[in-house]
Design a protein around this nucleic acid. Structure first.
Length: 271
DNA sequence: CTGCAGGCCCTTA
DNA sequence: TAAGGGCCTGCA
């Protein structure tokens, strides 16, 4: 295990932020495991501690995990920018999710994960993704080699055909991940929406979590509920030009974990 | 038994 | 452009 001291970092909060489906707490005390980028990593961190332990070499940490956990970005600056807006709800959200980070996940894995996530709950999404892995996430070629029935039998339901079509699209080159990586956020969203099963929300999730374009702002039922109940349907993302996706993550995490179960403003906001 | 979970597609008007 | 129904599956 190597030790790092990291500000604005809580592996527990990141694991419960819903952005990643293969980062989970394990039986060892204060320990999480993530399988990503062809590696298996254990992370240990006591509550509220800035000391974080990783079971990997310094070389692996520098070459892979520094980037993956977005450790080069100064979240203190981001938080100050958000707080400077004098928005009580956002201030509370940033305070609550003090250790959140935007993970830089694998693009292909995120495309499949985001499609799987539509009209689905997180525990089931995790189970479905896990069924595809052994232990690493399969390539597009591997997924394209299966039939639609294969995915239906695993429980993907109506998303089975979307999974297969997008895998085949990558295989035959009609979805070019290399080109996708070079596009701007709005271009990437537009490109992704060509493919069946990828709409506005899923495309923005792929842009945010898979392309690491932090200006992407996915609007799911939680974010929509926040905008409707707290902002009368008018939430101005232009206040956060270039990093609205990070703001979205604080909002989402706060609403889901602190105000769980609220519906149509039936529960009041308590800072 | 309904209702619904981090939507999307398709049809109408 | 907007609104509404249907969709796989599993769980409350």
């Amino acid at each position: 295990m190597i030790k790092k001291v990291i500000n604005d970092f809580s592996i527990e909060q990141i694991a419960n932020s819903g952005q990643c489906f293969r980062l989970n707490q394990i039986s060892e005390k204060n320990t999480w495991q993530v399988i990503a980028l062809g590696k298996i990593l254990k992370i240990r961190q006591a509550p509220r501690s800035e000391e974080v332990y990783f079971n990997c070499s310094e070389e692996e940490f520098e070459s892979i995990w520094t980037e993956y956990f977005d450790l080069k970005r100064d979240y203190g600056v981001i938080k100050d920018l958000i707080i400077s807006q004098k928005d009580p709800y956002l201030e509370a959200a940033v305070c609550y999710g003090y250790g959140l980070r935007m993970l830089k996940q694998d693009l292909w894995e995120m495309i499949i994960s985001a499609i799987t996530s539509q009209q689905n709950n997180i525990s089931r999404i995790k189970q479905l993704i896990e069924k595809l892995c052994n232990p690493f996430f399969p390539s597009a070629a591997e997924l394209a080699s299966h039939s639609e029935e294969f995915f239906k039998n695993l429980g993907f339901g109506y998303r089975a055909k979307y999974i297969l079509k997008v895998a085949r699209a990558v295989e035959n080159g009609s979805l070019d991940l290399k080109i996708l990586r070079q596009l701007s956020c709005s271009e990437a969203v537009k490109y992704l929406k060509i493919f069946p099963g990828i709409g506005e929300k899923v495309a923005n999730c792929i842009a945010l979590f898979g392309l690491h374009l932090v200006e992407a702002f996915p609007v799911d039922v939680w974010i929509k509920r926040i905008m409707d109940t707290r902002y009368r349907g008018r939430f101005d993302t232009s206040r956060f030009e270039g990093f609205a996706g990070i703001v979205q993550q604080y909002m989402f995490y706060y609403e889901r974990n602190n105000n769980f179960g609220a519906r149509n403003g039936t529960r009041t906001h308590t800072p």
